[in-house]
C-alpha cells in the first residue's frame, strides 16, 4: 500500500489471478491448477460426507449410492476426474521444475532471450499429452465401457 494517500489503488486482484491475458500457456496452467485444486478440495469434503453414509449400515449406503447414480452426478464425477488428471500431471511438472529439472542453467542473457519458461515447454507439452490420454481413457471408461 502506498504511503502517498492520494495514490490510487491499481491491484488487478482476482482478474489478475484468473486472467491469463497475453502471457504464455504456463500462466493459463497456473490458473487452471489453482481452480482444479480448489475443485478437488471441495470434492473431497463432499466425498467424505457421502461415504459417511456407510456408518448408517448397508441399507443407508445403498440408498445414498442410488441417489447419486444420475447422469448429473456422473458428469460431475467425470469432471472431477478431468480435474484430477490435469492437476496431477501439471503437479508433476511443477514438482520437477521446483527441483530445477528442465529449466536449464543460469547463463549470460543474449537477445532474443530464451528463458526457463521456454526451455521447460517440451516438458509442459509432454505432461499435457499424458494428461489428455488419461482423460480420454477415463472418458471411455466412464461413458463407453459403462459401470
Amino acid at each position: 500500500m502506498s504511503k502517498n494517500s492520494k495514490a490510487r489503488r491499481n491491484k488487478l486482484g482476482l482478474i489478475g489471478w484468473l486472467g491469463g491475458g497475453r502471457y504464455g500457456f504456463e500462466r493459463y496452467a497456473y490458473t487452471l491448477h489453482r481452480i482444479t485444486g480448489l475443485a478437488l478440495l471441495v470434492y473431497f469434503v463432499m466425498h467424505i460426507f457421502v461415504t459417511g453414509a456407510r456408518i448408517g449400515g448397508s441399507e443407508a449406503w445403498q440408498t445414498t449410492m442410488e441417489r447419486y447414480e444420475t447422469p448429473f452426478f456422473k458428469l460431475g464425477e467425470f469432471l472431477v476426474f478431468l480435474a484430477f488428471a490435469f492437476h496431477a500431471l501439471n503437479g508433476v511438472r511443477l514438482g520437477l521444475a521446483e527441483l530445477g529439472v528442465a529449466l536449464g542453467k543460469p547463463q549470460r542473457p543474449v537477445y532474443p532471450y530464451r528463458v526457463s519458461i521456454h526451455r521447460q515447454r517440451p516438458l509442459f507439452i509432454a505432461v499435457m499429452i499424458v494428461a489428455a490420454l488419461i482423460m480420454i481413457l477415463g472418458g471411455a471408461d466412464f461413458y463407453l465401457l459403462g459401470h
Binding site: Y23, L94, A97, E98, G100, P106, Y111
Partner: peptide, 29 residues
Amino acid sequence: CHFAGACSQVCPKGVDPAMAIQLLKKDIV
C-alpha cells in the same frame, strides 16, 4: 510462486526470475 512464468516472459533484460525462484526452492530442499 507456482511457476506461471509471466515474470520471465516480460522481463526486458532476460533476467528470468521464474527460474531464480525455482532454484531457490531447490537450494533449500
